[in-house]
Structure formats: structure tokens, C-alpha cells
Write a protein that binds this DNA or RNA. Structure first.
Lengths: 133, 133
DNA sequence: TTATGTTATGTTATAATATAACGCAAGCCA
DNA sequence: TGGCTTGCGTTATATTATAACATAACATAA
């Protein structure tokens, strides 16, 4: 990775950390362009891929969007709880559950390498009726 | 749903059942058009949404693709194990794990409504070294 | 049966997401 | 420095998905 690559990854991470709700790659691109107007989609996707691989960012597969890791580093897969009302995402870590999941998938000889665990629903604030629609 | 809607849903299901590996919406559209050339994307997406809602088809969020339900009806969320080599998908049902997952997500008051559980890796055939790349 | 309201469908267009391909530059090492 | 490898910028385009609105199908009751 070059210095320029590092710079962009850092900028992307800063942008994602500004938000509690997921941003699409093009949302991030839009914000990046406020600083560096010439940036093109592949640059953003590369930065997001690198950050995701290093666990600094999580990709929400069911939203096609990204969020900064809230835990500041962990090796296990995250459980991402997505509020379908306000959009906030809560991250949980549960190594036992991931183990169990690997066990179930592995019953037929399947060898897991990556787990996608996302839960949709309503967060505590949106679900209580405190804030009726 | 009208008769035409039923017809298309049935055709989509037949197409998906012809394949053991997931098909994108546009793959399905392409096959549908061999029968009914004038079909447009929204028609396919509507049929897939209806079939998914009824549990006849599963959407693979991490692939943006669809596969026919292999279990022939179940109410619980599926665990979908996706072979990154040959593309086959194996479906498992594990109500206990889904319960546990709901419990973890619910610790903060989150109320789950839908679970996305996908595991990437290598299936038994691809992982054993029997068929080296 | 016809009128009427409601929901589903067809159609067009376009939005949103993602990546292929390739030339140039940066970093690395002899 | 020169040659090698990898990463990056750039252009173009592929892929996935939906908005919007007109029309058609169906249900119901007068």
C-alpha cells in the first residue's frame, strides 16, 4: 500500500466514524470528493475492501453499506443488529455463537471461512412505542 | 395476486429449481425471456420478493442472488452455507441458534424481525483437496 | 351487468452499486 | 540506476435495483 492509499483509507475511516448509521460506498465517495474532487469509485471500493479485510470497517451485506467497527478491533465475526426504522447498527461479539454456527455449517464437511450474521428489527428506542410513527 | 402474477412466480420458481447454485435476478430474467421475451426487471423483482416472503426462495444477501428453498417450507430462518469455489449452497435449519442470536441482539432491547445468516467457505467436495485448483 | 374502488401488473426510464481493463507511478531491492 | 512488482488513477461499462405512472385484473355491491 502506498502513502496515497493510506491517506485515502484514513479519510474513509474518518468519514465512516462520523456516522452512527451505515453509509453506502457512494455516500462515502460524495464526502471524499468534498476534499478531493477527482476521486473515482474504484478508489473508494479499494479503500473499503482493505479496511473491511483489516476489520476496521464492516460491510452490511443486506444493505450494501458500510460502517466503522465500533469495537476497535476483534478477530471474531460480528453480529450486526440493524434497526429498520432509524438505521442505527449495533455490533455484538459472540464467539460461542460463531463456533456453533461453524459447527452446523460443518456437519456436511463444509469448511467456513467467513460469517455473515445480520439481524434486522427495531432498536430499543424505536421499538418501545416511545416514538410512535 | 393475479393469475399472471401466479404464472410468473411459478416460472421463476421452476427456473431457480433447475439450478443448485444461486442465480441473480437478471439471470432469472434472461431465462424468463426465453419464454416471454417482453418481461421487464420489475416483474422479476416482484416475483422474487413474493416468493422470498413466502419462504419458497431465499435471497443470498452477500451474493445479491436467489436460490429455491431446499427444505420445502420451514418457518425459521435458514443458515445458508455458500461454497466460494463451486458456488453451491447448502441450507440448514437451527431454531436454537436463531433463538440464541435473537437473545444476543436483544440484550440491548433490540427486537429482531429477520435474521440473515450466511456462511462462506468451501464445501466438502471443494475443500478436501480432491479437486485441486 | 355495470359501476366503482382497490390492488396488481406492464412499461419506461433511470438510479444505485460495483468492477474490468489498462497505463502510469510508487516503492523495493539488487 | 534499472528492473520488478504492486498499487493507484482513470475511463468506461457492467450489474443490480427501483421510481413512477398508466393500464389491467379482480372484487363487490348497486
Amino acid at each position: 500500500m502506498t502513502r496515497q492509499g493510506q491517506r485515502i483509507q484514513k479519510e474513509v475511516l474518518v468519514i465512516l466514524r462520523r456516522h452512527l448509521i451505515p453509509r453506502s460506498a457512494y455516500d462515502v465517495l460524495g464526502e471524499l470528493r468534498q476534499i478531493s474532487p477527482k476521486i473515482a469509485p474504484p478508489t473508494v471500493y479499494r479503500a473499503l475492501a482493505a479496511l473491511t479485510q483489516r476489520g476496521r470497517v464492516h460491510r452490511l451485506e443486506s444493505l450494501n453499506a458500510f460502517i466503522a467497527c465500533q469495537c476497535d478491533q476483534h478477530q471474531n465475526a460480528s453480529i450486526l443488529s440493524i434497526c429498520d426504522d432509524c438505521g442505527t447498527v449495533e455490533e455484538s461479539v459472540a464467539p460461542d455463537l460463531v463456533e456453533e454456527l461453524s459447527g452446523i455449517a460443518g456437519q456436511s464437511g463444509f469448511a467456513p471461512t467467513r460469517h455473515v450474521i445480520e439481524v434486522h428489527g427495531l432498536c430499543a428506542s424505536c421499538g418501545t412505542g416511545d416514538i410512535p410513527a
